[in-house]
Amino acid sequence: MTEAPDKGREDAEPPGPAVAMTAPQVDAWFVREILPLEAALMHFLLRSRRSSSEADDLRQEVYVRVYEAARQKIPHPAKPFLFAVARNLLVDRVRHEQVVAIETVADVDTLAVAIDEPGPDRSVIARQELRRLEAAIARLPRRCRQVVVLSRIEGLSRREIAARLGIGEATVSTHLTEGMYQLAKLLYGEPHTQGGKP
């Protein structure tokens, strides 16, 4: 009965990728699509470079390239794009550093195979997330862990934490900063040891 002669709507377009993205949209996309791939990316980078601080620097450069590309246009799908950028970066590096062993060059090519291992499951059931978070927090240094737990879980302020632990507020800040830094590394950069595979 509400059937109206609806001309020209049959060919409604499927929702394509958005064209102009605002900075918050790119940020959100980055957090949602790229950060969950960090563990795989680090694995990829570590296999070819060995030193972990060097891999961190490479990771940062890959992120900058991916992020800046996304400002122009969000790449779909994200994963192959991320690894293409990483691979190109490695190839560039190898070209610049003639001292690098041939083995590394070979690695860059063979690594392409490793990329398509099952990606992280996008829908994270609360319980899995809980386990991962607990594992990450358990790996923080003791004092740092206490401060993080009091702040993030118990919701105490800097002053309250200082009073509770009998330390200065500046020290609380130092531990919190360290905790934030470490948690980002543990939550994104470390392989998901359990329950990762479907």
């Binding site: 940062q60 900058v64 809980l130 607990e134 993030r152 934030m180 948690l183």
Partner: peptide, 25 residues
């Protein structure tokens, strides 16, 4: 620098996730 912005949204996202631990627990 993009590197700054990325580093910030990354650490913020991790910290937000950590907050869920309190909420979901």
């Amino acid at each position: 620098a993009s590197a700054h912005r990325i580093a910030y949204i990354r650490v913020e996202a991790a910290w937000t996730r950590a907050h869920r631990l309190g909420a979901l627990r």
